[in-house]
Protein backbone atom coordinates (compact mmCIF):
# COMPACT_ATOMS: atom_id res chain seq x y z
CA UNK A 1 0.00 0.00 0.00
CA UNK A 2 3.01 2.29 0.44
CA UNK A 3 3.25 3.17 -3.30
CA UNK A 4 -0.43 4.19 -3.26
CA UNK A 5 0.11 6.73 -0.49
CA UNK A 6 3.30 7.91 -2.18
CA UNK A 7 1.29 8.57 -5.32
CA UNK A 8 -0.88 10.90 -3.23
CA UNK A 9 2.22 13.07 -2.80
CA UNK A 10 3.38 11.94 0.67
CA UNK A 11 7.08 11.43 1.43
CA UNK A 12 8.17 7.78 1.70
CA UNK A 13 8.38 7.61 5.50
CA UNK A 14 4.92 9.07 6.05
CA UNK A 15 3.42 6.88 3.34
CA UNK A 16 5.04 3.82 4.93
CA UNK A 17 3.79 4.73 8.40
CA UNK A 18 0.22 5.33 7.26
CA UNK A 19 0.19 2.17 5.14
CA UNK A 20 1.50 0.08 8.05
CA UNK A 21 -0.98 1.45 10.56
CA UNK A 22 -3.81 0.96 8.08
CA UNK A 23 -2.68 -2.62 7.42
CA UNK A 24 -2.60 -3.37 11.14
CA UNK A 25 -6.10 -1.97 11.61
CA UNK A 26 -7.50 -3.93 8.65
CA UNK A 27 -5.94 -7.23 9.74
CA UNK A 28 -7.05 -6.77 13.36
CA UNK A 29 -10.61 -6.00 12.29
CA UNK A 30 -10.74 -8.96 9.93
CA UNK A 31 -9.32 -11.31 12.58
CA UNK A 32 -11.90 -10.03 15.08
CA UNK A 33 -14.68 -10.58 12.54
CA UNK A 34 -13.35 -14.08 11.86
CA UNK A 35 -13.23 -14.76 15.61
CA UNK A 36 -16.86 -13.67 16.01
CA UNK A 37 -17.95 -15.97 13.19
CA UNK A 38 -15.79 -18.83 14.41
CA UNK A 39 -17.29 -18.68 17.92
CA UNK A 40 -20.69 -19.03 16.24
CA UNK A 41 -19.42 -21.98 14.15
CA UNK A 42 -17.96 -23.58 17.26
CA UNK A 43 -21.29 -23.41 19.07
CA UNK A 44 -23.20 -24.65 16.03
CA UNK A 45 -20.88 -27.64 15.53
CA UNK A 46 -21.06 -28.45 19.23
CA UNK A 47 -24.85 -28.20 19.08
CA UNK A 48 -25.08 -30.44 16.03
CA UNK A 49 -22.91 -33.12 17.62
CA UNK A 50 -24.94 -32.98 20.84
CA UNK A 51 -28.21 -33.07 18.83
CA UNK A 52 -29.13 -29.53 19.89
CA UNK A 53 -29.90 -26.56 17.68
CA UNK A 54 -27.18 -24.25 18.95
CA UNK A 55 -27.63 -20.46 18.63
CA UNK A 56 -30.54 -19.79 16.26
CA UNK A 57 -32.39 -16.74 17.54
CA UNK A 58 -30.36 -13.60 16.82
CA UNK A 59 -30.32 -12.85 13.09
CA UNK A 60 -30.74 -15.40 10.28
CA UNK A 61 -29.67 -18.86 11.54
CA UNK A 62 -28.40 -17.14 14.69
CA UNK A 63 -25.50 -15.65 12.70
CA UNK A 64 -25.42 -12.46 14.78
CA UNK A 65 -25.26 -14.31 18.12
CA UNK A 66 -21.60 -13.40 18.74
CA UNK A 67 -22.27 -9.71 18.16
CA UNK A 68 -25.22 -9.79 20.55
CA UNK A 69 -23.02 -11.46 23.15
CA UNK A 70 -20.31 -8.86 22.54
CA UNK A 71 -22.77 -6.02 23.08
CA UNK A 72 -24.08 -7.64 26.24
CA UNK A 73 -20.59 -8.09 27.66
CA UNK A 74 -19.65 -4.55 26.68
CA UNK A 75 -22.52 -3.11 28.72
CA UNK A 76 -21.75 -5.11 31.85
CA UNK A 77 -19.94 -3.78 34.88
CA UNK A 78 -16.26 -4.60 35.32
CA UNK A 79 -15.85 -6.05 38.79
CA UNK A 80 -12.39 -5.99 40.35
CA UNK A 81 -12.00 -8.09 43.51
CA UNK A 82 -10.89 -5.92 46.42
CA UNK A 83 -7.97 -8.24 47.23
CA UNK A 84 -6.75 -8.34 43.62
CA UNK A 85 -3.55 -6.72 42.45
CA UNK A 86 -5.37 -4.13 40.38
CA UNK A 87 -2.78 -3.13 37.80
CA UNK A 88 -1.75 -6.65 36.85
CA UNK A 89 -5.36 -7.84 37.09
CA UNK A 90 -6.34 -5.41 34.34
CA UNK A 91 -3.12 -5.82 32.34
CA UNK A 92 -3.50 -9.60 31.95
CA UNK A 93 -6.47 -9.70 29.54
CA UNK A 94 -4.94 -6.85 27.54
CA UNK A 95 -1.72 -8.84 27.11
CA UNK A 96 -3.59 -11.98 26.07
CA UNK A 97 -5.56 -10.06 23.47
CA UNK A 98 -2.65 -8.01 22.10
CA UNK A 99 -0.35 -10.99 21.77
CA UNK A 100 -3.05 -13.02 20.03
CA UNK A 101 -3.43 -10.28 17.42
CA UNK A 102 0.30 -9.51 17.05
CA UNK A 103 1.11 -12.97 15.72
CA UNK A 104 -1.06 -12.38 12.64
CA UNK A 105 1.49 -9.91 11.27
CA UNK A 106 3.50 -12.62 9.51
CA UNK A 107 0.64 -14.86 8.30
CA UNK A 108 0.42 -14.78 4.49
CA UNK A 109 -3.26 -14.96 3.43
CA UNK A 110 -2.39 -15.13 -0.26
CA UNK A 111 0.71 -14.73 -2.43
CA UNK A 112 2.19 -11.42 -1.27
CA UNK A 113 -0.79 -10.65 0.99
CA UNK A 114 1.18 -10.42 4.22
CA UNK A 115 1.75 -7.58 6.65
CA UNK A 116 5.44 -8.26 7.39
CA UNK A 117 7.25 -10.66 5.05
CA UNK A 118 10.21 -11.15 7.41
CA UNK A 119 12.94 -13.78 7.17
CA UNK A 120 12.32 -15.12 10.66
CA UNK A 121 8.53 -15.34 10.32
CA UNK A 122 8.23 -18.76 11.90
CA UNK A 123 10.48 -17.81 14.82
CA UNK A 124 8.42 -14.66 15.29
CA UNK A 125 5.27 -16.75 15.63
CA UNK A 126 7.02 -19.06 18.09
CA UNK A 127 8.20 -16.04 20.10
CA UNK A 128 4.82 -14.34 20.17
CA UNK A 129 2.89 -17.50 21.00
CA UNK A 130 5.24 -18.16 23.91
CA UNK A 131 4.18 -14.77 25.31
CA UNK A 132 0.57 -15.87 25.46
CA UNK A 133 1.15 -17.71 28.73
CA UNK A 134 1.82 -14.43 30.56
CA UNK A 135 -1.79 -13.33 30.26
CA UNK A 136 -2.89 -16.53 31.99
CA UNK A 137 -0.17 -16.55 34.65
CA UNK A 138 -0.60 -12.87 35.51
CA UNK A 139 -4.38 -13.11 35.74
CA UNK A 140 -4.12 -16.19 37.93
CA UNK A 141 -1.74 -14.53 40.34
CA UNK A 142 -3.37 -11.09 40.37
CA UNK A 143 -6.83 -12.51 41.12
CA UNK A 144 -5.51 -13.43 44.57
CA UNK A 145 -7.79 -16.43 44.64
CA UNK A 146 -7.00 -20.13 44.85
CA UNK A 147 -8.58 -21.62 41.75
CA UNK A 148 -7.21 -19.02 39.34
CA UNK A 149 -3.79 -19.54 40.89
CA UNK A 150 -3.93 -23.30 40.35
CA UNK A 151 -4.95 -22.60 36.79
CA UNK A 152 -2.01 -20.26 36.27
CA UNK A 153 0.45 -22.87 37.55
CA UNK A 154 -1.05 -25.47 35.26
CA UNK A 155 -0.94 -23.14 32.28
CA UNK A 156 2.71 -22.26 32.80
CA UNK A 157 3.81 -25.90 32.99
CA UNK A 158 1.56 -27.01 30.14
CA UNK A 159 2.60 -24.38 27.64
CA UNK A 160 6.32 -24.83 28.22
CA UNK A 161 5.98 -28.61 27.81
CA UNK A 162 4.29 -28.43 24.46
CA UNK A 163 6.27 -25.54 23.05
CA UNK A 164 9.39 -27.71 23.02
CA UNK A 165 7.89 -30.36 20.76
CA UNK A 166 6.24 -27.70 18.57
CA UNK A 167 9.73 -26.22 18.14
CA UNK A 168 11.14 -29.55 16.95
CA UNK A 169 8.24 -30.07 14.53
CA UNK A 170 8.96 -26.67 13.06
CA UNK A 171 12.63 -27.63 12.72
CA UNK A 172 11.58 -30.66 10.60
CA UNK A 173 9.54 -28.46 8.28
CA UNK A 174 12.28 -25.84 8.07
CA UNK A 175 14.84 -28.54 7.16
CA UNK A 176 12.71 -29.44 4.13
CA UNK A 177 12.12 -25.83 3.12
CA UNK A 178 15.43 -24.22 4.00
CA UNK A 179 13.82 -21.00 5.19
CA UNK A 180 11.93 -19.52 8.13
CA UNK A 181 9.95 -17.24 5.83
CA UNK A 182 6.24 -18.15 5.84
CA UNK A 183 5.71 -17.41 2.14
CA UNK A 184 8.70 -19.54 1.15
CA UNK A 185 7.41 -22.38 3.32
CA UNK A 186 4.13 -22.28 1.41
CA UNK A 187 5.77 -22.02 -2.00
CA UNK A 188 8.04 -25.00 -1.31
CA UNK A 189 4.89 -27.15 -1.06
CA UNK A 190 3.97 -26.45 -4.70
CA UNK A 191 3.89 -29.89 -6.33
CA UNK A 192 5.52 -31.40 -3.24
CA UNK A 193 3.72 -34.75 -3.52
CA UNK A 194 4.71 -36.36 -6.86
CA UNK A 195 4.30 -33.01 -8.58
CA UNK A 196 0.56 -33.22 -8.05
CA UNK A 197 -0.31 -32.56 -4.42
CA UNK A 198 0.45 -29.17 -2.86
CA UNK A 199 1.01 -30.20 0.75
CA UNK A 200 3.86 -31.17 3.06
CA UNK A 201 1.39 -33.51 4.70
CA UNK A 202 1.83 -36.34 2.19
CA UNK A 203 5.49 -36.97 3.03
CA UNK A 204 5.80 -40.09 5.26
CA UNK A 205 8.35 -38.28 7.46
CA UNK A 206 6.23 -35.16 7.83
CA UNK A 207 2.81 -36.71 8.40
CA UNK A 208 3.63 -37.94 11.95
CA UNK A 209 5.04 -34.49 12.66
CA UNK A 210 1.78 -32.96 11.50
CA UNK A 211 -0.10 -35.16 13.97
CA UNK A 212 2.26 -34.10 16.77
CA UNK A 213 1.85 -30.46 15.75
CA UNK A 214 -1.93 -30.65 15.68
CA UNK A 215 -2.18 -32.27 19.12
CA UNK A 216 0.40 -29.85 20.55
CA UNK A 217 -1.62 -27.00 19.06
CA UNK A 218 -4.62 -28.23 21.04
CA UNK A 219 -2.51 -28.22 24.20
CA UNK A 220 -0.89 -24.87 23.41
CA UNK A 221 -4.26 -23.14 23.01
CA UNK A 222 -5.63 -25.02 26.06
CA UNK A 223 -8.44 -26.50 24.01
CA UNK A 224 -10.27 -29.71 24.95
CA UNK A 225 -9.07 -32.37 25.70
CA UNK A 226 -6.23 -30.34 27.23
CA UNK A 227 -8.30 -27.50 28.73
CA UNK A 228 -6.99 -28.13 32.22
CA UNK A 229 -6.45 -24.43 32.82
CA UNK A 230 -10.20 -23.89 32.87
CA UNK A 231 -11.41 -27.33 33.84
CA UNK A 232 -14.86 -26.36 35.08
CA UNK A 233 -15.30 -29.47 37.20
CA UNK A 234 -12.14 -28.76 39.20
CA UNK A 235 -11.30 -25.05 38.97
CA UNK A 236 -14.66 -23.24 38.41
CA UNK A 237 -13.41 -21.37 35.33
CA UNK A 238 -9.69 -21.36 36.04
CA UNK A 239 -7.90 -18.06 35.54
CA UNK A 240 -11.10 -16.42 34.24
CA UNK A 241 -13.02 -17.02 37.47
CA UNK A 242 -12.72 -13.49 38.86
CA UNK A 243 -13.16 -11.70 35.55
CA UNK A 244 -16.30 -10.11 34.24
CA UNK A 245 -17.44 -7.88 31.42
CA UNK A 246 -14.92 -6.73 28.78
CA UNK A 247 -11.91 -8.16 30.63
CA UNK A 248 -13.53 -11.59 30.36
CA UNK A 249 -14.41 -10.97 26.71
CA UNK A 250 -10.80 -10.05 25.91
CA UNK A 251 -9.69 -13.45 27.21
CA UNK A 252 -12.25 -15.15 25.00
CA UNK A 253 -11.35 -13.16 21.92
CA UNK A 254 -7.65 -13.76 22.49
CA UNK A 255 -8.21 -17.46 23.00
CA UNK A 256 -10.15 -17.86 19.77
CA UNK A 257 -7.70 -15.67 17.84
CA UNK A 258 -4.97 -18.04 19.06
CA UNK A 259 -6.95 -21.09 17.99
CA UNK A 260 -7.46 -19.57 14.54
CA UNK A 261 -3.74 -18.79 14.41
CA UNK A 262 -2.86 -22.40 15.15
CA UNK A 263 -5.33 -23.57 12.48
CA UNK A 264 -3.77 -21.26 9.93
CA UNK A 265 -0.30 -22.47 10.98
CA UNK A 266 -1.38 -26.07 10.28
CA UNK A 267 -2.56 -24.83 6.89
CA UNK A 268 0.61 -22.92 6.09
CA UNK A 269 3.12 -25.50 7.32
CA UNK A 270 1.54 -28.75 6.19
CA UNK A 271 -1.47 -28.12 3.99
CA UNK A 272 -0.16 -25.83 1.27
CA UNK A 273 -1.40 -22.46 2.55
CA UNK A 274 -3.07 -20.48 -0.22
CA UNK A 275 -2.17 -23.04 -2.92
CA UNK A 276 -4.99 -25.24 -4.21
CA UNK A 277 -4.81 -28.80 -2.85
CA UNK A 278 -3.93 -30.29 -6.25
CA UNK A 279 -1.54 -28.89 -8.82
CA UNK A 280 -4.18 -28.56 -11.56
CA UNK A 281 -4.49 -25.36 -13.66
CA UNK A 282 -8.25 -24.93 -13.31
CA UNK A 283 -8.01 -24.95 -9.51
CA UNK A 284 -5.94 -21.76 -9.71
CA UNK A 285 -9.06 -19.89 -10.88
CA UNK A 286 -10.21 -19.89 -7.28
CA UNK A 287 -8.44 -17.03 -5.46
CA UNK A 288 -5.70 -18.11 -3.06
CA UNK A 289 -7.30 -16.52 -0.03
CA UNK A 290 -10.39 -18.69 -0.52
CA UNK A 291 -8.26 -21.83 -0.38
CA UNK A 292 -6.48 -20.49 2.69
CA UNK A 293 -9.74 -19.76 4.51
CA UNK A 294 -11.28 -23.09 3.50
CA UNK A 295 -8.31 -25.05 4.82
CA UNK A 296 -8.12 -23.01 8.03
CA UNK A 297 -11.83 -23.58 8.54
CA UNK A 298 -11.35 -27.32 8.01
CA UNK A 299 -8.82 -27.37 10.85
CA UNK A 300 -11.08 -25.27 13.03
CA UNK A 301 -13.88 -27.75 12.42
CA UNK A 302 -11.52 -30.49 13.66
CA UNK A 303 -10.84 -28.41 16.78
CA UNK A 304 -14.53 -28.16 17.65
CA UNK A 305 -15.16 -31.77 16.66
CA UNK A 306 -12.50 -32.84 19.16
CA UNK A 307 -13.97 -30.54 21.81
CA UNK A 308 -17.34 -32.26 21.45
CA UNK A 309 -16.09 -35.84 21.40
CA UNK A 310 -12.95 -36.32 23.51
CA UNK A 311 -12.97 -36.40 27.34
CA UNK A 312 -10.52 -34.22 29.27
CA UNK A 313 -7.02 -35.51 30.04
CA UNK A 314 -5.80 -35.94 33.58
CA UNK A 315 -2.97 -33.54 34.39
CA UNK A 316 -0.24 -36.18 34.82
CA UNK A 317 -1.30 -37.78 31.54
CA UNK A 318 -0.94 -34.40 29.84
CA UNK A 319 2.60 -33.97 31.16
CA UNK A 320 3.49 -37.54 30.24
CA UNK A 321 2.28 -37.07 26.67
CA UNK A 322 4.28 -33.87 26.28
CA UNK A 323 7.59 -34.91 27.78
CA UNK A 324 7.70 -38.68 27.40
CA UNK A 325 5.99 -39.19 24.04
CA UNK A 326 6.09 -36.07 21.89
CA UNK A 327 9.50 -34.75 22.87
CA UNK A 328 11.48 -37.97 22.18
CA UNK A 329 9.40 -38.65 19.07
CA UNK A 330 9.97 -35.20 17.56
CA UNK A 331 13.68 -35.37 18.48
CA UNK A 332 14.02 -38.70 16.66
CA UNK A 333 12.20 -37.26 13.68
CA UNK A 334 14.56 -34.26 13.51
CA UNK A 335 17.44 -36.75 13.22
CA UNK A 336 15.51 -38.90 10.72
CA UNK A 337 14.51 -35.96 8.54
CA UNK A 338 18.00 -34.47 8.44
CA UNK A 339 19.51 -37.90 7.73
CA UNK A 340 17.02 -38.51 4.94
CA UNK A 341 17.64 -35.09 3.43
CA UNK A 342 21.42 -35.63 3.54
CA UNK A 343 20.99 -39.06 1.90
CA UNK A 344 18.99 -37.71 -1.04
CA UNK A 345 21.38 -34.76 -1.38
CA UNK A 346 18.76 -32.12 -0.55
CA UNK A 347 21.32 -29.66 0.83
CA UNK A 348 23.77 -30.01 -2.04
CA UNK A 349 21.66 -27.72 -4.24
Amino acid sequence: MTPFFQSLGLPYEWAWTIATVLGIVIISLLVMLAVAMVIYVDRKVLGAIMLRRGPNVVGPFGLLQSFADGLKVFLQETIIPSAANKGIFLLAPIITFTVALAAWAVIPFDAGMVMADINVGLLYILAISSLGVYGVVMSGWASNSKYPFFSAMRAAAQMISYEVSIGFVLVCVVLFVGSFNMSEIVMSQKGFGLGLINAHLVHPLLFPMFVVFFISALAETARAPFDLTEAESELVAGYQTEYSSMAFALFWLGEYANILLMCSLCTLLFFGGWLPPLELPFLYWVPGIVWFLLKTFLFFFMFSWIWATVPRYRYDQLMRLGWKVFLPMSLVFVALVSGYLMAIGHFAK
Binding site: L123, L126, A127, I128, S130, L131, V133, I160, E163, G167
Partner: peptide, 8 residues
Protein backbone atom coordinates in the same frame (compact mmCIF):
# COMPACT_ATOMS: atom_id res chain seq x y z
CA UNK B 1 15.96 -13.74 23.11
CA UNK B 2 12.17 -13.62 23.21
CA UNK B 3 11.68 -17.39 22.77
CA UNK B 4 14.31 -18.49 25.28
CA UNK B 5 14.37 -15.76 27.92
CA UNK B 6 10.87 -14.33 27.80
CA UNK B 7 9.07 -17.49 26.71
CA UNK B 8 10.78 -20.07 28.91
Amino acid sequence: LVIVYVGA
